[in-house]
Write a protein that binds this DNA or RNA. Structure first.
Lengths: 189, 189
DNA sequence: GTCTATAGCGCGATAGAC
DNA sequence: GTCTATCGCGCTATAGAC
């Protein structure tokens, strides 16, 4: 059996459709059709379309926040912390590339959990910022515009969901190292 | 007068709303309300909601393709070509940050122009790839995974629309240089 | 747990008055 | 060029049979 519960199957099916066309363009009929049932039957397992979205997004956002806390409190230097963050994004994204599309593109359609999501994201970005700024202070990173560094790294890490699914036979460990290299050392010879 | 034509006003208003909530979640009634008129009145100036989307996306995509051709055919070395590409993205995005959201997130809702858009994007990425690979070949760039380099740079450049509008007082020239530095030389000391 | 039927509403778009 | 009125359809969600 691929799914433990019918609810889990609904969420996984929705996740794929949400990535392809976005939350607003996917209907309950689309989700039901992809599962071979009628839309009304979905409501035996979930309460609303909105609930599907928040299940997808919040569980991912909490994984990031929780793991960031571990990285933040470790005793490594700041460069190694950044490498751990790269590994974290590759790990979560490769385990749920479709869900990451909703996290990135459909968070604004959250209702009850919107504020909670925004707080999780803000906390995450703050932790990231502190590592970058500490890295500059400790002379591990070049003296540069820290906001540009944060923007550049986070943009790339947040876009992994577009790219990873296209590389089916990927060696995750090798890729993580190559990506860390490009992000930290650049591409200039 | 802020807008030359009523059609232009419709497109600019839609562009802002599409960025906030995405094409599918914005209604003709929303667009009309933002302009202080009724939805039916919009149809005196445009033919369909779809037409608004394709006007936004195709004009931006064509700007990229056209300027990429100029960069490609210039006599500069590959690193300087990459810097020009960074400048191109900063330029187009700072002139139309809202439209870039549609280009990135709502292209899949194009109908008649979907294939044309996909061709423009593919051509652009191919030109980008050739510059990176030539750079490695000519020993301007480190020997590394070129796909990872392309992914990383393009992800950052494509995310500029999220970031640029938050920095109103930005010195565009200075920012372009800082971003080029981070993308090409990395952040490692 | 899935079905048919349908409520209640909002959608994109059109017709025609002014 | 904007309005009111409305068409025809699709949406989320519910009721109740099996």
């Amino acid at each position: 059996m691929k799914y433990k519960t019918r609810k889990e199957e609904i969420i996984q099916t929705s996740t794929i459709l949400f990535k392809q066309r976005g939350f607003s363009a996917v209907t309950m009929r689309d989700i039901a059709k992809a599962m071979g049932i009628k839309a009304a039957s979905l409501y035996n397992h979930i309460n609303s379309k909105q609930e599907i979205l928040s299940d997808i997004i919040i569980s991912l956002a909490e994984q990031f926040t929780q793991q960031m806390k571990v990285i933040k409190n470790s005793n490594e230097n700041n460069i190694d912390k950044l490498k751990q963050i790269v590994a974290l994004h590759v790990d979560i994204t490769s385990n749920n590339p479709y869900g990451m599309a909703s996290l990135n593109n459909d968070w604004m359609h959250l209702e009850n959990e919107l504020e909670y999501y925004l707080k999780l994201r803000k906390d995450y970005e703050n932790d990231f910022r502190i590592i970058i700024e500490k890295g500059i202070e400790d002379s591990e990173l070049v003296k540069g515009n820290s906001e540009v560094m944060i923007f550049s790294m986070l943009s790339t890490l947040r876009s992994l969901y577009i790219w990873l699914p296209k590389k089916e036979d990927l060696d995750i460990q090798k890729f993580t190292n190559e990506l860390s290299l490009v992000l930290i050392n650049g591409i200039n010879k």
